[in-house]
């Protein structure tokens, strides 16, 4: 058993929970950046002879992107859009935290049903990667602000990467790189979109975007 791998994976899990319970957007960005760096290091935790040069390159690329470039973009968006600090979860922090724990329980159960070759880094990698994925999805669903939804996407991506990294196959890393590119574009676009939304509406509350839909009442008014 690889104790160091276990440690890293558990820290990744704890970061998910921290993300669910923290109330500041800046903290959330830092957490997701830290998580990106940690997960980026995952493939390098294996035995030395198993590490291929391609992996080192892709790992360092993802560390640079997720650990530094994305946070920088997000911080800029927060600053320029003049976003308030609070995260505003639906249903309160304690509930989100408990849901996070339940997500982990579910992922653990799912991973026991999965038939897979033994992972090399840590036996917890599969459940934690599922949990990270679902936590990201949960954040996207339960948070009001566009920027926290971007953070949710990043978390989701971290989950996918962790899964690939844990099972250490060349192909999955290729897929991962492609996803990374997608996410990169997404973050870029979202950053611009957030900036524009905030300039137009003075807020980035996605719930209020629903005001944009055609409403019968307003037509009657006209």
């Amino acid at each position: 058993m690889n104790n160091l791998g276990d440690f890293v994976v558990i820290i990744v899990l704890l970061m998910n929970l921290m993300m669910l319970s923290s109330s500041r957007i800046r903290t959330c960005i830092r957490i997701v950046a830290g998580q990106g760096i940690l997960i980026g290091c995952m493939p390098l935790l294996n035995d030395f002879h198993l590490i291929l040069p391609g992996m080192v390159i892709s790992a360092s690329l993802s560390i640079i992107l997720k650990g530094f470039v994305f946070p920088w973009l997000l911080f800029r968006a927060v600053q320029e859009a003049n976003i308030k600090k609070e995260v505003e979860p639906v249903g309160g922090y304690p509930l989100s935290l408990l849901i996070g724990v339940m997500i982990f329980a579910l992922s653990f159960w799912l991973s026991t049903r999965l038939v897979y070759t033994k992972p090399l880094v840590s036996h917890l990698a599969a459940p934690v990667s599922f949990a990270t994925f679902f936590t990201g999805a949960f954040i996207i669903v339960s948070r009001m602000k566009a920027i926290t939804q971007v953070i949710g996407y990043l978390l989701l991506e971290n989950g996918i990467y962790l899964f690939g990294a844990a099972f250490l196959s060349e192909q999955s890393l290729l897929v991962e790189l492609a996803i990374l590119l997608d996410i990169f574009v997404a973050v870029f676009v979202m950053g611009i979109a957030i900036f524009h939304i905030s300039r137009e509406f003075d807020h980035i509350d996605t719930q209020k975007l629903s005001e944009l839909k055609d409403s019968i009442i307003s037509k009657q008014d006209i």
Partner: peptide
Amino acid sequence: VPHFLIVALALAIVALIISMR
């Protein structure tokens, strides 16, 4: 404070789940 105490609860539950390996 309840929020802080729930963290303890969450940690314990996570530990218990992991212990079921």
